[in-house]
Amino acid sequence: MTMHDTKPYEPVFTPERRAGLEELLKRYPTKRAALLPALWMVQEARGWISDTAMTEVAEVLGLTPAYVKGVVTFYTMYHLHPVGKNFVQVCTTTPCNICGAENVVKALLQHTGCGELGATSPDGKWTVIEVECLGACGFATPIMVNDDFIESVTPEKVLEIVRKYS
C-alpha cells in the first residue's frame, strides 16, 4: 500500500487532538505512558497507523520512530495497513472452536466476498480475520465488526449481519 505516500501528509494531532492528548498526559508521570492512547487516537482518526503517523507520534511524545514502531507491532489491534470499511474479527479459540466457530469464518468469507482471511474484499468494504479468545466464550461465536461486539453468531446469522453493515 503506497497510496498514502502520494498525498501530502496531514498531521493527526491537530490543535484539538493535541489538547485531548494533553489531558491524557496528566494521568501519567511520563510522556511515554501516553503512547498506547495516542496510537488509539491515530487509529480512530485514520483507520490505521502508517510509518509517517508513527513518526508524528514519536515527535509528539519525545520518542524515536523506531521505538514507536516496536510498540505498534507488538499489539495486534493496531493496523499496519489500511483495512476494509468493516473490519471483522472472529474468535476461533478452543471454547468457540468446539461450538463451530470455523464455520462462522467460512460463512463470513463467503458472504463478504473476501475469499480469504486477512484479504480485503474487491469492493473495499470488508476484511475478515481470525482472532484469539474475545473474552465472551459463553456466547459462542462472538465477532467484532469494527467496534461493535456481536455475540452468539452462527453461520445462519452471517448473511443478515453482512447486509446490515453493507
Binding site: T93, T94, P95, E132, C133, G135, A136, C137, G138, F139
Partner: peptide
C-alpha cells in the same frame, strides 16, 4: 481478561 474460557470480569 484474555484467558480462553474466562468471561466473568466482562
Amino acid at each position: 481478561e484474555s484467558e480462553p474460557g474466562t468471561f466473568k470480569d466482562r
